[in-house]
């Protein structure tokens, strides 16, 4: 009973944090460059989608850039060449990412652990070569000058300031759906599979189906993030489908805290801001990212948010013990 109450308390705290975060983000563009904020939001959604898979399903995908980047290409192409409206373009990219997630998921969930990581990485590289060679992606040039058409034919998004709130809304919707998924019975089964797969099998759960659904969901939201990013920057390029991009989302989630609700957001903000500050330093960005990887894995594997949560829990445990001895 107490654990259920604690879980409910935890959810309340999480919702309060989310509300505060949203309030801050509402006023943030008056202080900070909106393009940078939109970039952070897109990567935060990307990392949250990735976290659904690694943090709650225990599946490390090393190829998530394929959903992010391919959705970006699809949105860019449908909006620019087919003249689709912005919202339909984003939806098209997201839908194609979901379809790709289904195909890749069916192949990848046949192996576990390290092999799963290698398989997703290899399949993502295949998507990369496809994007490099297919005529519609524009090869090395990518797709440029994607128009920002009025949303639903009504809302003018040509100004960064107005589009910012649309991106914030997309992020909020994506985050809340992922959050709901994590705390649903489905999410509980996913966690059970992460903790002990043979036991989940013996309890009669169709483990592969749960993994596949989680994979498709994760791919879908990664696609939504990529499709939105392409409209923000009005550009789709090969950068977004490279293995380096897959590595970056792993890094963001790891730094922020795998399996924590807000970790991916914190991690995404840190990495994007770091890249932004270090743009003049050339390849040192790569070295820095590598160092952060190594240090995080060696010193604080729970990530920033994970360590904060653990510290808070230790404190409340200590308080609880004190209360128990006094009472």
């Amino acid at each position: 009973m107490t654990s259920r109450k604690a879980a409910a308390d935890g959810r309340n705290v999480e919702m309060i944090v989310f509300a505060v975060l949203m309030a801050v983000m509402m006023v943030a563009p008056f202080v900070v460059y909106p393009i940078l904020l939109m970039k952070i939001l897109c990567f935060a959604l990307f990392a949250c989608a990735f976290n659904l898979l690694i943090g709650y399903g225990g599946l490390l995908s090393f190829g998530h850039a394929m959903f992010f980047g391919f959705a970006a290409y699809v949105s860019a192409y449908t909006v620019k060449a087919w003249g689709l409206s912005t919202e339909l373009g984003i939806l098209a990219g997201t839908a194609v990412a979901a379809g790709l997630g289904l195909v890749v998921g069916l192949i990848a969930i046949r192996r576990q652990g390290i092999y799963f990581a290698m398989v997703t990485l290899a399949l993502a590289q295949m998507v990369f070569f496809f994007c490099l060679q297919a005529p519609f992606t524009g090869g090395e040039d990518g797709i440029q000058a994607i128009p920002r058409r009025a949303l639903f034919g009504l809302i003018d998004i040509s100004k960064d300031m107005s589009f910012y709130y649309v991106v914030l809304a997309i992020f909020a919707i994506g985050f809340l759906i992922i959050y709901r998924t994590i705390h649903s019975p489905f999410g509980q089964v996913l966690k059970a599979i992460r903790e002990n797969e043979p036991r989940a099998v013996s309890l009669g759960y169709a483990v592969d189906r749960f993994k596949l659904i989680a994979f498709v969901l994760s791919a879908t939201f990664a696609g939504l993030a990529g499709a939105t990013k392409t409209i923000v920057f009005q550009l789709a390029s090969l950068t977004d489908v490279t293995w380096q991009m897959s590595g970056e989302v792993v890094l963001m989630t790891l730094v922020g805290g795998m399996g924590t609700v807000f970790g991916p957001i914190v991690g995404a903000a840190i990495i994007v801001l770091m890249q932004n500050t270090l743009t003049g330093f050339g390849e040192w960005v790569l070295v820095m990212q590598g160092c952060i990887f190594v240090l995080t894995v060696l010193l604080f594997r729970r990530g920033i948010v994970g360590e904060i949560v653990a510290a808070a829990r230790r404190r409340s445990d200590a308080v609880g013990r004190e209360a128990a001895t006094e009472g």
Binding site: L254, Q289, G290, F293
Partner: peptide
């Protein structure tokens, strides 16, 4: 050697980070 008692995925992440460092240094 500090990671043997942990999930194998951490070994993968650590060596991935090392690869980034080495490649970045040589590129620089």
């Amino acid at each position: 050697s500090r990671l043997y008692h942990l999930d194998h995925l951490y070994g993968l992440l650590l060596t991935f980070g090392l690869a980034l460092i080495i490649e970045g240094l040589f590129r620089q």
